[in-house]
């Protein structure tokens, strides 16, 4: 009987070592440990044993059972693992195939730049002011120290609706509206759509976008203007950007400046983008003209301020290397999806 038990153990263990699926495992389990299994069958013959033999064989039978149970459990774990491995292996995919796109829409490049400009100035404590695109001549010109028949009107080819109403040529009228309804301290930017009577070509558009800024407070200096523009230029064009101010004339600021940034193409040594100059003009700026402050009931002997303005298209084209302004208004999906 002892030999019989050992033989069962060996036979069962050999089988377990060879099988490769769970169904076989169940069969083996039933065959050896089941109610009608080998082990049970042998144990039923226990009654024929002597009293000395019985505990020994009983002990052995229990050992064999425990051994088989443990082995079955181990084999099950092995088989489960092997089956998982097989499954994983059968599920291999080519991860280098292109991804499936859940296409989200793209921001227009002008919005990208506008958002960036807004973020920079929001961070510097500016509010965003807005106003109408169709404006009174008074707000667009006269209050800005540009009376009717002033030669400075030549620099801004204006669309007229009537003698008193124009398509705004800059967002400066928003500054006037804001100053006339708010007291200093004032710190705003005015983004928006503006109009000039320029025929459409690669570098001109009768409709374009500007962001202007205005600060009015006690003790605002031209140094503050320079510092603000420098911080802005570094923010939008990169930490190594330098700015250069050239004296200029705008009727609504005094002193006035045109502001260049070091070329984003070459960093200032001269290239095709900057036509060899090393500088690219992107801004107009200056200290708010005392006549403009007076027009808004702000005393220039107490308050001072600065203002600046930039063309969004120009910056956008520079930043993204867009060489034709018309692309910005055509809305070809192949263009828009690049941003």
């Amino acid at each position: 009987m002892k030999q019989q038990l050992e033989a069962i153990r060996k036979q069962a263990l050999d089988k377990l070592a060879q099988i490769s699926d769970l169904k076989e495992l169940e069969e083996i389990k039933v065959a050896y440990l089941g109610k009608k299994g080998e082990l049970t069958r042998i144990l039923k013959g226990m009654g024929a044993l002597s009293a000395e033999e019985r505990p020994i064989i009983g002990q052995l039978a229990n050992d064999v059972r425990a051994d088989l149970e443990e082995n079955i459990a181990n084999t099950r774990a092995r088989l489960v693992r092997e089956e998982r491995d097989r499954k994983l292996k059968s599920e291999i995919i080519d991860v280098t195939l292109p991804g499936k796109i859940r296409a989200i829409g793209k921001k227009h490049p002008l919005t990208l730049v506008l958002d960036e400009i807004k973020d920079i100035f929001l961070g510097m404590g500016y509010e965003i002011a807005e106003g109408p695109e169709i404006e009174l001549d008074y707000n667009n010109f006269e209050a800005l120290n540009i009376p009717k028949n002033h030669p400075a009107r030549d620099t801004q080819d204006t669309f007229y609706i009537s003698d008193n109403v124009v398509l705004r040529t800059h967002t400066s009228p928003v500054q006037i509206r804001h100053m006339q309804s708010n007291k200093p301290p004032i710190r705003i930017i005015c983004p928006g759509r503006v109009y000039r009577s320029d025929a459409v070509d690669a570098t001109h558009s009768p409709v374009f976008h500007q962001v202007e800024g205005l600060v009015v407070d006690k003790g605002v200096t031209m140094g503050d203007l320079v510092g603000t523009l420098q911080a802005f230029a570094k923010s939008i064009f990169g930490e190594n950007t330098r700015i250069r101010l050239r004296p200029h004339h705008f009727p609504f600021t005094e002193p006035s400046a045109e502001v260049d940034v070091s070329c984003w193409g070459c960093g200032g040594v001269g290239c095709r983008i900057c036509k060899g100059e090393g500088w690219i003009e992107i801004l107009g700026a200056g200290m708010v003209h005392p006549n403009v402050l007076r027009e808004c009931d702000i005393d220039p002997d107490i308050y001072s301020g600065f203002a600046f303005g930039m063309g969004v298209e120009r910056i956008t084209m520079g930043k993204f290397g867009i060489d034709d302004m018309r692309l910005l208004f055509e809305n070809d999906i192949r263009f828009l999806r690049q941003f």
Partner: peptide, 28 residues
């Protein structure tokens, strides 16, 4: 001021940031 500044050279004006004035909160 402009006459002085343009011969002093605008680019020699030391950049400063608005400070020491009433702080303002930028928001939409």
């Amino acid at each position: 001021c402009e006459e002085i500044a343009r011969f002093y050279d605008y680019n020699n004006i030391k950049p400063t940031l608005l400070s020491g004035k009433e702080s303002m909160q930028g928001r939409k």
